[in-house]
Write a protein that binds this DNA or RNA. Structure first.
Lengths: 352, 352
DNA sequence: TGGCGCAAGTATAACGTTATTCTTTCACAA
DNA sequence: TTGTGAAAGAATAACGTTATACTTGCGCCA
């Protein structure tokens, strides 16, 4: 196998394969593109010739003819923790299909996202998995017009008929907060909501819903971005008449800052204040008091998104079925009860 | 600007630009490829036309003609923490040069690395930044033969004349261990060395060197991969006559496991045992006792690697200078003194 | 045996860019 | 005026693949 180097030292072309198999060039092309009108015996002859000369399709030439390259793109805000796991899952699926993965981190800049979308479109990628930061509908529409499959991950794309794979943020948050309520807490604060991010907003809604349906008043504290902010907030609570007995944090960074701040202010978790956070992280178990969290599986949703993308990619050739309805997949979260919520939980996994 | 859509709805080609600027096709091509024989006024005319019609070069066609695509590849073992930071730095540099970044995570599988190297080569990437897992010299040589610039990151490539950007692991480890020695420790254990990874090996050597030059006997414990292993090890120490008073951990995961294990065994840090780890991480400050670490800057080395790569890429056209000697850049580490080493680190924070 | 249809061959023209080889134009000095 | 050389146009041929429009062979049924 892989004899390589026929003439000169250029990689072998489809012509070399045709000669080797004693067939026409078009027959080889037909085999490569899975045309139905090729006899099995001929296909076998061609495949063996391909293996013998070590032929690989030239993506550049295919792209020039308007075909897609064997590359999918993944656009994420960054590659920390959650999205790094997403990437690994996506790449694993892509490799199984013999595709490359091109990653772009937009740094949460909508402008950069637009610009990169443009570059991606030019790149003739076979498909795109997008964690939307901004909402550049026209630019995305441009991709859709070109029939490039797109799947939204983690956040939906409003107004466009695009497949989406999401986490049930609202329900997850509700479960987390209800867990605190069930343990007798009535003054439960919510931190980390900035209004900017879809996921944070959803979780915030879940929090409010849980509070309201228990007849409790929501206590919302936003604009706590730095550790100093968080410490100041906690100090304010210390002098308040009715200070919160529990806190729900809507995102990982807020959870971390919260834990740090409580630690510095010498407040014990959960005795002085109970904590439940959204999103699990490495070391959540080792922080002074192991943290109870609402966990979501990056691997799970990313894999689902990738599978969905490849389903679109491989079914695309049919063409002209009249505008398929977009699929929405919503994955549940899991409450991981550790010690910060006050109950003696070791590792019980309750589902939403 | 970006008027788009000249004829049909295809993206504009070099021909459209030529027509718009009232010049010949070749003149446009010459402008795009920075040929010296173009008058400044003509260049300006062409550039303005390019902007007006919203032209972008078609990578596929350029690649077909043997030119490289505007994409660089980054091959890493995974995208957790350190390498995620590397990616961000690399991408930032790439974007400044108007290049895309293609990432491949090999999962530390040498076979996968080889396979992906092959795909990369076929992809006509403009350059490659590689964190080598295996040492697939023939496959790499294949890239080098094609004059594709390659820079090794974090680990060197033995036997090949390839630029490398590294961290001074040995010196860093030595500094960390010497810090413990300077504080009076004599029985300092070393954990986390598995023999497989270059960086761990180097740090291990640094540890040994520090111990030897202080006249101390190295205490090495490898094969402690899981938390259970680590706990067992610590229990063994508890019953030993001469138990270590300090531990040096050669890698992040080992540091974390170590801290967890000590915590579970109710050993106080640094009173019962002092700890210094190689590699900083988010939350190192919040773990029961803030951890003293030897820190390396992923951003710094990755940016340097990317800059070096683009220097190669942009200087390549000169051609045929007789085998440039490879550059090796070695970056220093920084000792971040917190509280786990026993001396009064700057950071305030209560012990668990 | 004539016609029908399927598998598969040939030939040719794209796709957008660059390289090559000629011309042409134009300014400027001899 | 004529020669010189630089700037730039025009024409054409690649690069490897695919699409189109044929043609050719072959077996099969009427």
């Amino acid at each position: 196998m892989m004899t390589r180097a026929r003439k000169g030292d250029r990689p072998p072309t489809i012509i070399d394969v045709a000669r080797e198999a004693s067939v026409g060039v078009m027959t080889v092309s037909r085999v490569l593109n899975h045309h139905p009108s090729v006899k099995a015996s001929t296909r076998a002859k061609v495949m063996s010739a391909i293996a013998r000369v070590g032929y690989v399709q030239n993506d550049a030439a295919r792209m020039l003819k308007g075909r897609r390259s064997r590359t999918i793109a993944l656009i994420v805000p960054d590659l920390t923790d959650f999205f790094a796991s997403c990437f690994h899952a996506v790449q694993e699926v892509a490799m199984r299909h013999d595709y490359q993965t091109m990653v772009v981190a937009t740094g949460r800049s909508a402008a950069l996202e637009s610009q990169q979308l443009e570059a991606i479109a030019n790149h003739q990628v076979a498909g795109l998995i997008l964690v939307p930061s901004g909402e550049d509908t026209p630019r995305l529409q441009h991709l859709l017009d070109r029939d490039i499959p797109v799947v939204a991950l983690d956040r939906p794309l409003a107004g466009l008929n695009i497949d989406a794979v999401l986490v049930d943020n609202r329900e997850g948050a509700e479960t987390g907060v209800r867990h605190l309520i069930d343990h007798g807490h009535t003054r439960i604060a919510c931190v980390g909501f900035e209004g900017s991010s879809y996921t944070a907003r959803e979780r915030f809604e879940g929090y409010k819903q849980a509070m309201r349906s228990a007849g409790l008043r929501p206590l919302v504290f936003n604009q706590v971005n730095t550790l100093a902010d968080m410490e100041a907030l906690i100090q304010r609570w210390a002098h308040a008449k009715e200070r919160p007995t529990a806190v729900f944090s809507v995102k990982r960074l807020a959870s971390i800052r919260l834990v740090q701040a409580l630690h510095r202010q010498k407040l014990r978790v959960p005795q002085d204040i109970a904590v439940v956070g959204f999103d699990d992280f490495e070391l959540a178990e080792e922080l002074g008091t192991p943290l109870t969290v609402v966990a979501q599986s990056a691997t799970e949703i990313a894999r689902a998104a990738a599978e969905q993308l490849f389903q679109q990619i491989t079914s695309a050739p049919h063409a002209e079925q009249p505008a398929r309805q977009a699929v929405k997949m919503i994955f549940p979260t899991h409450l991981i009860v550790r010690r910060s919520c006050g109950c003696a939980g070791e590792e019980a996994g309750a589902v939403s």
